[in-house]
Design a protein around this nucleic acid. Structure first.
Length: 524
RNA sequence: GUCCCCAUCGUCUAGAGGCCUAGGACACCAGGUUUUCAUCCUGGUAACCGGGGUUCGAAUCCCCGUGGGGACGCCA
């Protein structure tokens, strides 16, 4: 079967982790099924959609290697078609005007009262609804309004679609039938919201309950009774199409067969199923992904300042690492593999294995995975990233290549590269970690050994092995425990307490520079 | 308020009634390798939300409770 999936973001802000995870699952599912992956920009919210957001979105897609197969569709370009389809629904009496007397009125989609033969509708048997005592019920084709009492005794009004109340019977407190509705009676009802049938002194609603149901690819069977649903607006007063109409219409036009989207859309699905039917197309398969929550356990929202995809790039994460990590949020291949490349992910992916519960983002695990990916980067490629993150003034340094090699195994994110500057700055510009100085250079304990060491290094060829030998010799001559001269030397030479192998560090730095730094450190 | 969904170590997860003394990964702790740090290796701490059922047997199936989340727009 032809498999077509789509990612349909609204460009109203930066793409965050939750959005892009949805895109990844769509992409993976499409590629796994050798199907088609489409992009649609849902920019109908003119107030908030921006070109900048669209650009950023495209950048993210490209960065993460998610290619799409056809020209992206821009929803605003579809406006006329959306309006035409709404007009057709109006003509077919499948929609009505909210305010027919006004010059301009929103168009409302009317859930069909006669829907028993729909694939996604099933009967739930007789149902009853207790009303507020002696209250009024008003209805016509545009809906039914009635009053109920909450558990706290408060009277509230409810307006629902009439389609939810098949074979409606209104009875009074004594059980007498006040009104009975059948199919013919329904046809006689007005679809002008101002002309409603009103029944007084009602006590109870009796009806046949029906529900919408469908098989969600990740959540299993989902259902909702129609009597809890309301007709909904599909065209605004200003004539612009609303999300529901635009979304469904475009899915039809793009011939989408599988809709994979966020959890927050499950309720919309019950509406969209009817829209597909009314527009004359078979319903697609649906899969609803649970949310991704932040460190506080709250779902990422558009207002969330953190977790923008572009920020991860700027923080030195590799696209393949983020892609891998995100694919594993709410999905697993079923075996113990965690580090999977693109091909392996495509091969192993299936929506059936997607989890139903929300997942929390763990930066530490992402960082670790990123480090693994960096570790196996070939040197040339690794250097490209290094250059992107290295302060510009050090870019031309002859030491750069040696420094980068030396530090490769310890880079977790390329942001770490900024911490290499002690290799490049001049002796006088070196900054010292006060704690390290306090611990290793205060007092005279290491003064003499460091002076001796400096002399030995100056006299040597400056190679790592020579430096190592020198350190050894000085330690022995001064009764210092083996290895204990390393940290004082490190602080003196690098200003920090952590770094790469000491003798290699000196070799890369050069013996003249090393000696100059020791001299300066001892004069502090 | 109404409706809906979810629930295994701190976190991501494995688990389709007996392979579970609940496995893996991150993080954490300890030890080893490394003259330091990192890498790497070894080991360890740590979970089935609670209560009832069903069953010879439940993390797994059912019910109730609790907790968390979502949806109820002329936003998408």
């Amino acid at each position: 079967m032809d498999f077509r999936a789509r990612f349909a973001p609204s460009p109203t802000g930066q793409v965050h982790i939750g959005n892009i995870r949805t895109a990844i699952f769509n992409w993976l599912e499409a590629r796994h099924n050798k199907g088609t992956f489409l992009l649609r920009i849902e920019d109908t919210d003119l107030e908030r959609s921006t070109q900048d957001a669209i650009n950023k979105l495209m950048e993210c897609m490209q960065w993460l290697g998610m290619d799409y197969d056809e020209e992206p569709m821009y929803q605003t370009a579809q406006g006329e078609k959306h309006k035409a389809s709404a007009q057709k629904l109006l003509e077919n009496k499948e929609a009505y005007l909210l305010d027919p007397s006004a010059e301009k009125s929103p168009v409302v989609f009317k859930f069909p009262y006669k829907c028993d033969d729909f694939k996604f509708i099933r009967q739930c048997g007789a149902a009853e609804l207790a009303l507020a005592p002696d209250s009024k019920v008003s209805f016509n084709q545009t809906g039914i309004t009635f009053f109920t009492v909450t558990s706290k005794g408060k009277v509230v009004d409810n307006t629902q679609t009439l389609a939810g109340f098949k074979d409606l019977e209104i009875v009074d407190a004594d059980g007498n039938t006040l009104y009975k509705l059948d199919d013919a009676g329904y046809d006689a009802l007005s679809d002008d919201p101002a002309q409603k049938v009103e029944i007084e002194h009602a006590a109870k609603l009796k009806f046949q309950r029906r529900e919408v149901f469908y098989q969600d690819l990740v959540k299993g069977e989902l259902a909702k009774p129609i009597d809890s649903m309301k007709d909904f607006i599909i065209v605004r007063t200003d004539g612009s199409p609303v999300f529901h109409l635009a979304n469904v219409y475009d899915d039809i036009e793009q011939r989408v067969t599988h809709i994979v989207r966020g959890d927050d859309h499950v309720e919309n699905t019950y509406k969209h199923l009817f829209l597909f039917k009314s527009l004359g197309y078979p319903e697609p398969s649906y899969a609803h992904l649970p949310m991704i929550v932040n460190q506080q356990g709250k779902p990422y929202s558009k207002r969330d300042g953190d977790a923008f995809v572009g920020d991860f790039r700027a923080k030195g994460f590799l696209a393949q690492a983020l892609f891998n990590y995100l694919a594993l949020l709410g999905w697993s291949p079923g075996d113990d593999r965690e580090k999977l490349n693109r091909e392996e992910l495509i091969e192993a992916f299936s929506l059936e294995r997607a989890l139903r519960s929300p997942a929390q983002m763990d930066m530490k695990k992402l960082t670790n995975l990123n480090g693994q990916y960096i570790a196996e980067l070939p040197h040339e490629e690794y250097m490209k990233y290094v250059m992107d993150f290295l302060p510009a003034e050090f870019a031309g340094s002859p030491k750069l290549d040696a420094v980068a090699k030396l530090m490769h195994s310890r880079v977790k994110t390329f942001a770490d590269v900024a911490g290499w500057s002690y290799f490049f700055v001049g002796t006088d510009a070196l900054e010292y970690d006060p704690k390290g100085v306090q611990k290793f250079l205060s007092g005279d304990t290491f003064r003499k050994p460091l002076e001796e060491l400096s002399a030995k290094i100056a006299a040597s060829d400056g190679s790592a092995s020579a430096v190592e030998e020198a350190i050894h010799a000085v330690e022995e001559a001064n009764g210092i425990k083996q290895g204990h001269l390393n940290q004082p030397l490190r602080v003196a030479v690098t200003g920090t307490t952590v770094g790469a192998g000491m003798s290699e560090t000196v070799e890369v730095l050069g013996k003249e520079e090393t000696c100059a730094r020791i001299a300066r450190a001892l004069s502090l």
